[in-house]
Every structure is written in structure tokens, then in C-alpha cells.
Simulated scan of single mutants.
Amino acid sequence: MAAAVHPRHPQLAVSGAIVRDDKVLLVRRARSPGKGFYSLPGGRVEFGESLHTALHREVDEETGLRIEIVGLAGWREVLPTTGGGGHYLIMSFAARWAAGEVVLNDEHDDFRWLSPEGLGDLKLTGGLQDVIAAARRLIQS
């Protein structure tokens, strides 16, 4: 199997902290980057696409859900590692569930609706708890 080739520049991505009945949707990555870790649905922004359009598209592709975006809940930068991996700037948004039931695509192998206090011992991507806390504040205000 050939090693993954990563672009020589940062990639812009979006993610959504989707809240339904005071619980947030977490999805577990089925492949790299982040294989085995729970995170928020999302992905790369395509050329010419707004951040909101990208988030709606990614959430629909990955989960089949419709959402209402509330606002920016934070961002994080993922730098390349010595073992490989790309360079990403991820803009994370707070969103309310609007319609649909979760139907995962092949990028994920599990999902959970959890209260922010119920994340327990799950393997989470870096900075996830801060984004969820910020999203919760935005949605409750």
C-alpha cells in the first residue's frame, strides 16, 4: 500500500457540534486521519464553497442530517506529524439538529448522541471538549 500524499499547503475544513435534546452527536472515524477517535462530523471545504455550505454538505454526506448553524464555536489547527498526516485548519460550528436520523457513510463506523458530561473514556480528537462547551453556550444563549 502506497503512503498517502498530502498537499504542500494547509487544508481548510469545517466540523459541526450538532445538538439535539441537549446531547451532541459524536462520530467515530473509520479511517485516517483520526481512525478510532470520536469527533464531530465535517470535512474539507471545496474551492469556491462558503464555510456554511461546506458544513451543510459534509453533515449531509456523513450523517444524512439537516442542521441549523448557530455560530462559530472555535477552531483548531492540526499540524503534520513525523509519521505523516496533513496540515488542517478546522473551523467548528455550533448547530441544532433540524431533521433526519443518522445514517453514517463509510468514513465512520459508530455514532453516539451524548451529553457533554457523558463523554467518559471515549477516545476524542484534540480540543473536542472545548468546542462542545462553546457550542453549548452558543445554543443556550
Rank of each mutant, 00 (worst) to 15 (best):
Glu62Gly: 13
Ser115Asn: 12
Phe47Cys: 04
Trp75Leu: 06
Asp121Thr: 14
Ile67Pro: 00
Leu124Trp: 07
Pro41Val: 02
Gly86Lys: 10
Ala17Cys: 12
Arg8Cys: 07
Leu89Gly: 09
Gly16Gln: 05
Val70Met: 05
His56Val: 13
Glu58Leu: 10
Gln11Asn: 10
Gly127Ser: 10
Thr53Phe: 02
Phe93Arg: 03
Gly71Cys: 08
Leu72Asn: 12
Gln129Leu: 13
Gly86Tyr: 06
Thr63Asp: 00
Leu12Cys: 04
Ala17Leu: 06
Asn105Arg: 09
Leu12Pro: 00
Pro41Ser: 03
Ser15Lys: 11
Leu26Arg: 01
Leu124Arg: 13
Leu25Val: 15
Glu117Pro: 04
Lys35Thr: 11
Thr81Met: 05
Leu89Trp: 10
Trp97Lys: 11
Ala135Glu: 03
Glu101Ile: 13
His87Cys: 13
Pro33His: 11
Glu77Tyr: 14
His9Gln: 03
Arg137Trp: 00
His87Met: 11
Asp130Asn: 11
His52Lys: 08
Ile69Pro: 09
Gln129Asn: 09
Ile132Thr: 04
Thr81Trp: 05
Gly86Ala: 12
Gln11Ala: 11
Val78His: 05
Gly127Arg: 09
Glu61Lys: 08
Ser50Pro: 14
Arg76Asp: 01
Gly48Ser: 13
His9Arg: 08
Leu40Trp: 01
Ala54Ser: 14
Phe111Asp: 05
Arg20Pro: 05
Leu26Cys: 00
Glu61Leu: 13
Leu72Ala: 07
Leu40Arg: 06
Leu26Gly: 00
Glu77Leu: 08
Arg8His: 11
Ile132Pro: 00
Arg137Lys: 10
Phe93Leu: 04
Leu89Glu: 10
Pro41Gln: 01
Pro7Thr: 12
Ile67Glu: 01
Leu51Lys: 06
Leu51Thr: 10
Gly83Tyr: 05
Leu72His: 14
Leu72Gly: 09
Val27Met: 03
Ile18Arg: 02
Gly83Asp: 09
Glu117Asp: 15
Asp121Asn: 14
Val19Phe: 00
Asn105Leu: 14
Ala17Gln: 05
Pro10Ile: 03
Gly126Leu: 04
Ala4Ser: 12
Ser50Gly: 15
Arg137Cys: 03
Arg112Val: 12
His52Thr: 09
Asp106Met: 12
